[in-house]
Amino acid sequence: MNATQSSRHRRVGDSPAIKWLLIGTAVAVAIALLIMPLLVIFVEALGAGWGTLADNLTDQYTLHAIGLTLFVAALTVPLNLVFGTALAWLVTRFRFPGRKLLITLIDIPFAVSPVVAGLLYLLLYGRNGWVGSWLADHDMQLMFSWPGIVMVTVFVTCPFVARELIPLMQQQGSEEEEAGVVLGASGWRIFRTITLPNIKWALIYGVVLTNARAVGEFGAVSVVSGNIRGQTNTLPLHVELLYQDYNIVGAFASASLLAGIAVFTLAVKGFVEWRQTRTLNRLQTEEAA
C-alpha cells in the first residue's frame, strides 16, 4: 500500500538516477567547455608571473588597443541606449502598418554573421563603395579607421536594448502614461517620472549586454578596421595579432583582460536579472490579484 502510494506521488523526472545523470552531464559539459578554458586563460596569463603580466598589459600597443576598445564602447552604448529605447517606445506605444515587420527587422543583426555585416559596410562605405566613393571625394574616411569600427559595433549590438525593453513595455501597457497625461504632465515629465523608473532594470540589463558585446566584437570589426597596430586595433583583434606573432603570454595577458570584463559583466547581469525577475513576478501576481 505504502509503495503504491509513494509511486503515485512520484512526478516526472523524480527518478534519482535520471536526475543525477542529467546534473552530472551538465556539470561535465560546463567544466570542459566553459570553466577549463576560462581558467587556462588566467593560468597562462600569469604563467610568467605578475610582473610579466603587468609588462604585457602596459605595452604601448596593448594600451592603445584597450583605449580604442573603451572608446568604441563609450560611443556605442549611449547610441544604442537612445536608439533601443526610442524603438521600443515606438513599437509598444503606437499602432501603425508594418509594426510587426519592424519588430522582426530588429533581429537582423542577430541573424546575420558579423563578418557578413562587416563586408556589407565595407562594400557600402569603403573607398570604392556607393556611399564611400562620394565620401572619399569629400575627404572623409570611414572604413579602416575608428568611425567604421563604431558603425559596425553599433550595428551588431543594436538589438540588445530594444529586445529587453519590448516585452516588458508590452506587459506594462500604456495606462500609467495615459494617467500621467490626463493629470497634465508634459511628455518629458512622463518619460522621466513614469516610463523610465518602470523600465530601469531592463534598460540596465540591455546596456550591460550591449557593452559586453561591444567590447568583445571580433568578426565585423576585423573586416572594417584593417588591423593597423596602434591605430585601429581593438583588444580582441590585438589578442589575435599577438598570438600570430608567437607572443603567447602577451596574447593571454590581453585575453585575460577581456575574460575579466566578461566575468564582471556576468556578475552585473546576474544581479540585474535577479532584480528584474522580482519586478516581473510582482507584476504577474498583481495581475493575478
Binding site: 495606462e175 500609467e176 495615459e178 494617467a179 500621467g180
Partner: peptide, 28 residues
C-alpha cells in the same frame, strides 16, 4: 487631453507603481 483639466479613473487603476500612495496623489 493634458489641457482639458479632467479627472479620469482607469478600470485597472493605473497607479504609478514605483510611487507611494502620497506621491501618486500629489502627481497632478
Amino acid at each position: 487631453v493634458r489641457d482639458r483639466n479632467i479627472g479620469f479613473v482607469f478600470q485597472h487603476y493605473a497607479l504609478f507603481r514605483h510611487m507611494t500612495v502620497a506621491q501618486n496623489i500629489a502627481f497632478g
